[in-house]
Design a protein around this nucleic acid. Sequence first.
DNA 1: GTCTATATCAGGATAGAC
DNA 2: GTCTATCCTGATATAGAC
Lengths: 207, 207
Amino acid sequence: MTTKDVGRAARRGPYAKSEERRRTILDAAHEVFAAHGYRGGSLQDVADKVGLSQTSLLHYFPSKRDLLMAVLERRDEITGDAFPDDMEEGLVDSVIRTALFNENIPGVVELYTVLCAESVTDSHPGRVYFTERFERLRKSYARRFAELAAQGRLRSDVDPDVAAMSLVALWDGLQTQWLLAPDEVDVVKGLRGYFDLVVLPEPSPDP
Amino acid sequence: MTTKDVGRAARRGPYAKSEERRRTILDAAHEVFAAHGYRGGSLQDVADKVGLSQTSLLHYFPSKRDLLMAVLERRDEITGDAFPDDMEEGLVDSVIRTALFNENIPGVVELYTVLCAESVTDSHPGRVYFTERFERLRKSYARRFAELAAQGRLRSDVDPDVAAMSLVALWDGLQTQWLLAPDEVDVVKGLRGYFDLVVLPEPSPDP
DNA sequence: GTCTATATCAGGATAGAC
DNA sequence: GTCTATCCTGATATAGAC
């Protein structure tokens, strides 16, 4: 079926190819922003990577800011960060699995770490994204910890809200140290250590 | 005693005034880098704050990079981060006290958080500073936790090295969240929660 | 020590030809 | 959709007068 066959309601032009190009650009932008941050990375860098002129790049994303937002959205897709709470997997397994996965994609971790802190500065385009992300994540983890508490599997003197906040903080902090000293810092080890402290093992069945 | 009285070996010129000016500049630079990061903050911003032309500023610090390094060194002085291990104060008290103090100087926390993550990017002038800082801090805390362990005051299944790495990570991560949501995140609460998990109370004397 | 003037460069974004 | 050419802005840094 060619374009001509479709009739008047059809989309014209090589839409699929354009979408692919957009993805290519996003990958390149991802790399550039991860390596140099938002302010430090230039549109020219991205354009060079994808073999396009800087102006052609702006044909796909009308501004640098738009490009960043698209990169952040894409990050959510890659990492599944827009976190479906309905999964059957337990909190501990889910976190550890993701942390293990992240070891293979340091670029994604770097992007996240750099942009997160950069967004703390004045009027950064990513600020809303990270603020909302933290809020969502804290809520989500707090609910998970509360579930564990209901099952008697959370150490009794642990507040689920504090645990949620701390888990997010610990994870991010470990990743930062890992990026600066990958041979000395083990993110998964640190997370396991924390879970061992707050999560009790499954209760053994009554004899 | 005036300069004339000192004889030929004396320093000439208003040395003290110059030193004061340098401190003023460092304070301004601190604010600017905290608010906009190293790349985002400009020498002009700093110059404006201190009421000097941009070129005059470069008279005191020959390059932007030099200015940043001086700001980081000054940060160590302010926070006492070059951590004298010889203090009598216990690890827990020391950390909590510093965290409480930090609540009053969000600018310093912001500078630290922003520059730390920015330094993860390629060839950032602050990279060495933060890498070394983390290494030093992990070592220092690990020794403190080991001391606690020797006193039987560390939970037995906790590795001092993991605890040190985790404490640093947790602290930094909490500060980041606090900067983005100061009303919802309590750094001290998070740290206390962690210490409650790993540090045991002083053993009661034998009956 | 402080300034003006300027060199030099790079960034993002627009206009318009093809 | 892609390019060249260009605009505009703002950055660091230097030269040299006062």
